[in-house]
Design a protein around this nucleic acid. Structure first.
Lengths: 193, 193
DNA sequence: ACTCGAAACCGAGTCCGGTTCGACTTGAGT
DNA sequence: ACTCAAGTCGAACCGGACTCGGTTTCGAGT
């Protein structure tokens, strides 16, 4: 039987387990939002009123915890992509989704780095999610290309790279406001009449 | 007397000091090259045949050590910029230098992140170096703009962001070869006839 | 209501790496 | 040779990740 990689954290069955699981996750989201994905895991446990061992019982690594904290957002992003594809013309659909994707990757400081490393790592907690994102990007890109609105030599991988690059710049470079400048510059270089 | 930020590590005066300083720096370069800037500082001390305290005597923080390891490269990059400005037409000079800058930022895994954080941090060991790089970028950019080869609305800051973004993608995204694709796409979006 | 096994919980303990500090050693100027 | 600042040393401290074996608690089944 092949190793399917790490199991995603599941909401546990017992009432006390579920209570703690939820509490940890909520505190984790707050903490990551405030301090980035590098925040102390012990601190999360402490604030959630739970022993460190309990936290590790639910989320075996920091990665697992971050992944769980971001799961809902990813689902929303994929839905937004599908929705844009259904309701907008090809190029606007792509552009809209790209901006959302950049924003999503910036949910917590440090998240892009984790995400990006996982794209090619089958063992990672994120791999499936990343693959889904890549798939979404590919669909939107190919549609826009078929409509003649994006240069034909652009690859899905370029799109993924631009998303992460733009998100990374946002979180590491001085404070920027509004939509990602890097993304805009990329788009002007890549779109066609 | 104002705090001028951290002092850059200087080659010490005494012979034994200089010996150790040089040994540490050489080992540090090898180690960072092999394992990235996150490598264990203790490991560096061990391999250099020096006690941990000695290392800290010369380089008070990991940042100081990384900075020292990258100093020569930065000098070379700045010289290359000046040289390109003197010997090439405006746009090629900018393009050439950008590629070099991306390569430089990729000297060690993790270096871009350190560098980028320092741009706005006056306290950082790098601040002066970053400022010099930004200055170089600005000169080349403005010249290319004056020659009508780059869109007028591009700011030096955009250039710096693109350099770090491209370098970051190279080190974090799957293995890429050849010149940075991200940089190329940016340039096609930004250059004019 | 009671039993009992699995599910959860707990937190001390291990490991590891960064950084500090005060005692000791040594190079080099006089 | 003498002196002392420069340099060296490494034990010790700290904080955080992660483990594990003992204990408690839930809740399904009777």
């Amino acid at each position: 039987m092949p190793d399917n990689g790490p199991r995603l954290a599941r909401r546990p069955v017992r009432a006390d387990g579920r209570r703690n699981y939820d509490a940890i996750l909520e505190v984790a989201r707050e903490t990551f939002a405030a301090e980035g994905t590098g925040a102390s895991v012990e601190e999360v446990a402490r604030r959630a009123g739970v022993a460190i061992g309990t936290l590790y019982g639910h989320f075996p690594t920091r990665e697992a915890l971050v992944e769980a904290s971001l799961r809902d957002g990813l689902t929303a992003l994929l839905e937004a992509g599908a929705h844009a594809a259904d309701t907008l013309p090809p190029l606007p659909a792509l552009v809209d989704w790209l901006h959302r994707a950049v924003e999503y990757c910036g949910t917590y400081r440090g998240a892009v780095t984790l995400l990006t490393r996982s794209v090619d790592d089958e063992q990672s907690y994120w791999h499936a999610g990343c693959a889904a994102m890549e798939q979404c990007a590919e669909t939107l890109l190919r549609t826009a290309q078929a409509a003649g609105r994006v240069r034909a030599d652009v690859e899905p991988r370029d799109v993924v790279d631009v998303i992460s690059a733009a998100a990374w710049v946002r979180e590491n470079s001085g404070p920027r406001t509004g939509p990602s400048r890097l993304l805009d510059l990329f788009l002007t270089g890549v779109t066609t009449a």
